[in-house]
Amino acid sequence: MVNIDDFVKRLETILDYYGLNASAFADKIGVQRSSMSHLLSGRNKPSLDFVMKILEVFPDVDLYWILIGRGNFPKSNDEDFEIPQSSTPIQSNQNSGADLFSSVGINEEEKRETKKASAPKNVNINLEDDEIEKIVLFYKNGTFKAYSP
């Protein structure tokens, strides 16, 4: 699964490397500027079409690097990456409007996974007069969980 925050960081690396702003990049690969803005802000996820347009226009971008961070940017010609072979056939998704990187389902192990948080510093809470509305946990990987009592 593609981590969207990491994908955006790699996309920003490409922008810096070629000295382009988001608008010029969008124009160059042939997508709407608003699509680029929504992607960089984390509102939208990248589509397969978007990734393929990047690879067509910028040959120095490696597919595995842009998607999962493996490999190098700019792409070096002497490195060969082994493409993992699946034992099950790949079925095409007939819904062309579907997002390529959306998760299909979350397995039970991921649901049960919890992370330990470090003890907060300088906590000054007076619970006598205040009622808790929401508790939000922020994780280092950029995700968060909100709990309401």
Rank of each mutant, 00 (worst) to 15 (best):
V2F: 03
V2C: 02
V2A: 00
N3S: 01
I4N: 05
I4P: 05
I4A: 02
I4R: 06
D5H: 06
F7R: 01
K9V: 08
L11V: 02
L11P: 03
T13W: 01
I14P: 01
Y17Q: 02
Y17G: 01
Y18V: 00
Y18I: 00
G19F: 02
L20W: 04
A22Q: 14
A22S: 12
A24R: 09
A24N: 13
D27L: 09
K28T: 11
K28R: 09
Q32E: 14
Q32N: 13
Q32T: 13
S35M: 06
S35G: 11
M36R: 01
S37F: 11
L39C: 01
L39N: 03
L40Q: 05
R43K: 15
S47G: 05
L48T: 10
D49A: 07
F50V: 04
V51H: 02
K53F: 03
L55G: 01
L55Y: 02
E56P: 04
F58W: 04
P59H: 01
V61R: 00
V61S: 00
D62E: 05
D62Q: 02
D62H: 02
Y64V: 06
L67I: 06
G69F: 03
R70Q: 12
G71L: 00
F73T: 00
K75V: 00
S76K: 12
F81A: 06
E82L: 11
I83C: 07
P84T: 06
S86V: 10
T88Y: 14
I90V: 14
I90P: 08
N93P: 10
N93Q: 11
N95T: 10
N95E: 13
S96V: 15
S96H: 15
S96Q: 15
G97A: 15
G97P: 12
D99V: 14
L100Y: 14
L100F: 15
F101W: 08
F101L: 05
F101V: 06
V104L: 15
I106D: 09
E109C: 11
K111N: 12
E113R: 14
E113I: 13
E113Q: 14
T114V: 13
T114S: 10
K116G: 10
A117H: 14
A119L: 12
P120N: 04
P120W: 07
K121N: 11
K121S: 12
K121L: 11
K121G: 07
K121A: 09
N122M: 06
I125A: 07
N126D: 13
L127C: 07
L127T: 10
D129A: 05
E131C: 08
E131D: 14
E131G: 07
I132H: 02
E133Q: 08
I135Y: 04
L137Q: 07
Y139G: 04
Y139M: 05
K140N: 07
N141P: 04
N141V: 04
G142W: 01
F144N: 09
S148H: 09
